[in-house]
């Protein structure tokens, strides 16, 4: 709606936050976005054996314009990267991304020139899901984790504050290339 984004901070917004989070988490439509072998497991989650509809995901949307969740299932090649970004841009807000499998999360065992080393180079990722490929229960677990995240996500003024705090923390953190000495 957009109205909830304009509320001033305080009691009203926190109530709306809770309600909106509760509503949003229970009706997420995933976009069909299978790129490789992980997509087979993603399809298996749609079968009656695991039944993704129990989590309010009645169908996999064939168009990104009617999808809220992008499950990047499989390795993202350099050639596919602009397509991933475009599909993500076509999804309406609010939208979430699950990076399914190690290839999508970090390149996995394909540490080479052809594969994007983690889909978070292209789009913001909410949940990382390890596994090669993850079994259907692992994807369901990732979806439940995402539900927790959506339920507690801030809105409007609070979200802007949270984003600003996250940016400040990221800027003040030590960059990886400046970390010296022995690990741990």
């Amino acid at each position: 709606m957009g109205l909830e984004e304009k509320l001033p901070a305080g009691f009203l917004l926190s109530t709306v936050e809770g309600l909106a989070g509760y509503m949003r988490k229970a009706s997420i439509w995933p976009a069909t976005f299978g790129l490789a072998c992980c997509a087979i497991e993603m399809m298996a989650v749609g079968t009656p054996d695991y039944d993704i509809a129990r989590f309010g995901m009645e169908r996999f949307s064939a168009t990104p314009r009617q999808a809220d969740l992008m499950i990047v299932a499989g390795r993202v090649s350099q050639k596919m990267a602009p397509v991933v970004r475009q599909v993500y841009d076509q999804m309406p807000n609010p939208k979430w991304v699950i990076s399914m499998g190690v290839c999508a999360s970090s390149g996995g065992m394909f540490n080479n020139y052809a594969i994007v080393q983690g889909v978070d180079h292209i789009i913001p990722v909410d949940i990382y899901l390890p596994g090669c490929p993850p079994r259907p229960q692992m994807l369901l677990n990732a979806i439940i984790e995402l539900h927790h995240q959506i339920e507690t996500s801030p809105l409007g003024v609070n979200r802007e504050e949270a984003a600003r705090a996250a940016e400040t923390a990221a800027l003040s953190a030590t960059p990886t290339h400046q970390m010296k000495g022995l690990l741990a």
Partner: peptide
């Protein structure tokens, strides 16, 4: 044990 999903790369 297989429930490893997380929202942070570092925690994984």
């Amino acid at each position: 044990f297989y429930e490893l999903a997380d929202n942070d790369r570092g925690k994984l």
